[in-house]
Amino acid sequence: MKSGLKRSNAPIFWALFGGGGMLSALVGPMLVFITGIAIPFGLLLPEGAMSYPKMLAFAQNWLGKAFVFAVIALFLWHAAHRIFHTLHDVGIHAGVAARLICYGSAFVATLVSAYVLLGLGF
C-alpha cells in the first residue's frame, strides 16, 4: 500500500451533493411548476394557494419548515458541489476562491434560511 495517503473529506460534500441531487430529481420539476408557473398564473392551482396566511402557516409547521429548509439547503449544496467540480473540469482547479464561492454561498444560504425559518416561530 502507498504510504502518506491522506483521507479525503469529500464524503461530507458528496453526501450533501447526493441528497440534494436526489431530492431535486424527485420533486424539483414539480416544485418549479407549482411555485413558478401554476400558482402565479392560476393554472391547475388557485392563486391563493401561496397567500401570506397560508405560507406563514406552512412555514410555522415543523414539517413545512423542514421541507423548505431541506429544499433550499440541499439544492444549493448539490449545485455547489457540481459547480465546484465543473470549474475543475474546465481547468479552474480547486483553489480557495472556487471553494469559497461554491460551498461558501451554500453555507451562507443555509444559515440565512435556518435563521428566517426559526424567526417565523412555531
Binding site: A59, V68, H78, R82, V116
Partner: peptide, 28 residues
C-alpha cells in the same frame, strides 16, 4: 457538461426560493 450544467439552474431556483423565504420573514 450539459447535465452538470443543470446545477446552475438548481442553484438559481433555490436562490429564488430563498428570496421568497426572506420576504416571507419580512411580513405580508
Amino acid at each position: 457538461m450539459v447535465h452538470e450544467g443543470t446545477a446552475l439552474f438548481v442553484a438559481a431556483y433555490a436562490f429564488t426560493l430563498l428570496v421568497g423565504l426572506v420576504r416571507l420573514g419580512q411580513g405580508e
